[in-house]
Design a protein around this nucleic acid. Structure first.
Length: 416
DNA sequence: AAACCATGCAACCGCCCAGCT
DNA sequence: GAGCTGGGCGGTTGCATGGTT
């Protein structure tokens, strides 16, 4: 059974409101109020408008103390956090932002905020694409930096791109991550899961990046049986002894992993290494003052990528480990940004591939905000009052965000 | 300068729900 | 309890504007 229209559709005006209509409606409501009946209001006012249209115009535009545009960072954060928590309940979100209407917030989210977040995600996806290209191109090109520099930033928009699957995966991942954040708010124990990418789905871009980086660091750029990048870095830094150690360790690793599958902590394509062995390998290198940046970086990648999948009991320790790892990465990227490490990767005539490695790190440096965003940006950027810290109550408790939800008093576009 | 495109925003549509008869 | 009605809400549309080609 259908329902009767709320007004005579034939005889009502549609479209934008004129200043005269605005003035008429505003003057009437300020003088007499809405009378509790929006449907009857247009007739009383003398407007050829639908009652719902009058209500919308008043609530979204004419009522006092309405703010338009100019959303502050704090409002952004509140909107984001509430959207993550409760979804598109715009009226509830609007109730927490005085002067804002649900329509305004909805438009703001759809046109700007969402793109802002998705833009970061896209950037992250694109970085993965770059990593893939870099990784694959290294096997056939002597100058992978050129490949990086010529990669179009829009390439991942190409629906025919083989990387399109990343977009799909990350879309799902984004929803999953939003959900995880909600879980974090509702259950503090969940924070250890959220903070630990090793526990996230394997499609997580950071994890993928780590895996790819591992692969990259462990392979020979020319796809020959010559020294791997790690070895070449050692050689570039003048450590023939370390290069030989690496060669021995490498042989040990493959022997171990081929004879005892239980030793394999990470299997990715043909790459099979054990966490202990690779750590031993990297530790032997990280003591080098010349190579500390690169190998600490590699170590961090390895540490974080090789964290085994665990359940709740161990989650917190791994979360802590990850926090340390990411801060190390960040510090080292910052160092590189300050050219402190430039000498470590300066092109050498005898080892030209080291310059490629430097370009790789430069690329990583340019994308460092992605790492932060995926790991903890929402945590750190939120104002303290809207804390994500699961230890300190929930966002709802801190701010009383739902103080009026349920009563209906502040639902919709406001108190008027 | 004109056509095209992307973006932002106001407004509409249709569904749901609560209250009333 | 069923039907009706108005209020409220989220999703969508269409237009205006600004930017790009």
């Amino acid at each position: 059974m259908g329902r009767a229209p709320c007004c005579d559709k034939e005889n009502v005006k549609k479209g934008p409101w004129s200043p005269e209509e605005d003035a008429t409606l505003k003057a009437y409501i300020e003088k007499y109020g809405t009378g509790g009946n929006w449907i009857a209001l247009p007739q009383k006012v003398g407007l050829k408008r639908c009652g719902k249209s009058c209500r919308l115009r008043w609530l979204n535009y004419l009522r006092p103390n309405i703010k338009h545009g100019g959303f502050t960072e704090e409002e952004d954060n509140i909107i984001c956090s509430l959207y993550i928590s409760i979804g598109s309940r715009w009226s509830i979100i609007a109730a927490q932002l005085p002067g804002r209407t649900d329509n305004d917030i909805k438009n703001y989210w759809n046109t700007r905020l969402k793109k802002k977040l998705l833009g970061r995600r896209k950037h992250s996806i694109n970085e993965n694409t770059v990593m893939n290209r870099f990784s694959s191109s290294r096997t056939s090109q002597l100058n992978p930096a050129r490949d990086l520099n010529t990669a179009s930033p829009d390439d991942d928009d190409d629906s025919s791109s083989p990387y399109n699957s990343h977009a799909l995966s990350n879309s799902a991942l984004e929803r999953l991550q939003l959900h995880m954040q909600l879980q974090t708010l509702q259950n503090p124990l969940f924070s250890s899961f959220y903070n630990n990418p090793a526990l996230w789905p394997k499609i997580h871009p950071l994890r993928e990046k780590m895996i790819q980086s591992l692969h990259l660091l462990n392979q020979n750029p020319n796809n020959t049986n010559g020294p791997s990048l790690i070895q070449q870095l050692a050689l570039a830094n003048g450590s023939q002894q370390r290069a030989e150690d690496i060669e021995r360790n490498k042989a040990d690793i493959y022997e171990l992993t081929s004879t005892n599958p239980n030793n394999v902590s990470l299997q990715h394509d043909s790459l099979k290494i054990t966490a202990s062995k690779i750590e031993e390998l990297v530790n032997s290198l990280s003591t080098s003052s010349d190579g500390s940046v690169s190998f600490n970086y590699a170590k961090n990648l390895i540490d974080t990528a090789l964290i085994p999948e665990v359940d709740g009991a161990e989650a917190m320790s791994y979360a802590n480990a990850f926090d340390g790892a990411t801060s190390n990465i960040q510090a080292e990227l910052d160092d590189m940004g300050n050219n402190k490490a430039a000498n470590h990767f300066a092109p050498r005539e005898d080892h030209p591939n080291t310059s490629a490695e430097f370009d790789y790190f430069k690329e990583m440096n340019g994308c460092k905000d992605n790492i932060l965003w995926w790991s903890s940006e929402l945590d750190t950027k939120l104002p303290s009052a809207i804390s994500w810290d699961p230890v300190n109550n929930s966002v709802f408790q801190n701010e009383g965000l739902f103080q009026d939800y349920g009563s209906g008093a502040t639902c919709g576009s406001g108190q008027y």
